[in-house]
Design a binder for these strands. Structure first.
Lengths: 161, 161
DNA sequence: GCTTTTTAGTTGTAGATACAAGTTATCGAC
DNA sequence: GTCGATAACTTGTATCTACAACTAAAAAGC
């Protein structure tokens, strides 16, 4: 129980701004995808993750790890996506406890259709707002933060420092 | 409908890292406060906002704007905080539709008690992970993003560029 | 001043998420 | 190979949040 090291004025400002971004950005990302594609950002992220996997297929646990979702959450989201015919569950031959999820053709088409709008949104909100130099700085800063937030690089094919 | 400007490799990496931070950081902030103080990060933010207001009092709408909450959400959270005796609602004399919320003595004590752990957490997760220079860069970058995300500076006493 | 519109806040209802418990299957000890 | 422990999901239940409908009061139109 040592004495608290309070934030300096500059740190305080930096953190308050960061906290505000943390609060605002997810809602704005969600809003565009919901409006244009009737998908939450999380659902999009699930589909996008599958689209990049070998054979567009992953074990549910692996997908949960990639997306930082709990298993119950992912299970229910997958049920929803399955109802939309965007993914399919199937038994896993090697481990009969486990299941595979596969992106259907319709699911692939959905990702292809949704990607441009999402990318434009990310550009408009973030990347195009920053100078080339700032984008590099942001990349370094977030990489540094992830060493603590995600030490095992689960959400990320840990692209070197 | 122009051709999509896809992300360069560097942009893609920067964005994926940023998205991962966005996904992970709120949960970790919440976990510490819930564990140590039985408060969500949002509840803490509400109490902290009140603690800095004149007379520790704000109109509900003003508080909603500061915290980026919808009115229904804030209304219910306030009901919860009121049950914990951390805040009090009172009629607003100037406008009888409106209500004021005030931090009680117990609410003030709660913020004072919770702040050190929260600050240590923010330090450990973010500020102490970065160099002095990176903290400045983060501050500039987030300020830039907020010009788009929060053009009216609602969440922030817009501290100049 | 009376009516219409807008604003402040609360509550109804539905969907999303978490934690815990349940099910089925693998793994490890022996 | 049998038994207890662990792992991969799924489902039950409670809480949280959003959107919409509701109440009450101020503001605006005329």
């Amino acid at each position: 129980m040592t004495k608290t090291r309070w934030l300096t004025k500059d740190e305080q400002v930096a953190w308050l701004r960061m906290a505000a971004v943390l609060e605002l950005l997810p809602g704005v990302l969600d809003a565009q995808l919901t409006r244009d594609e009737d998908l939450t950002h999380f659902e999009y992220y699930v589909l996008a993750s599958l689209s990049e996997a070998p054979r567009r297929t992953l074990r549910i646990t692996a997908l949960a790890s990639l997306t930082n979702a709990t298993l119950p959450r992912l299970s229910r989201v997958l049920t929803g996506l399955e109802k939309m015919a965007l993914v399919e569950r199937s038994e896993c031959s090697e481990d009969r406890r486990a299941k595979n999820v596969t992106l259907t053709e319709a699911g692939w088409a959905k990702v292809v259709k949704a990607a441009p709008g999402h990318v434009e949104n990310v550009r408009g909100l973030v990347l195009d707002q920053l100078s080339q130099e700032q984008v590099e700085q942001l990349s370094s800063i977030t990489a540094q933060l992830l060493t603590r937030l995600d030490p095992e690089g689960r959400m990320f094919a840990s692209t070197g420092g």
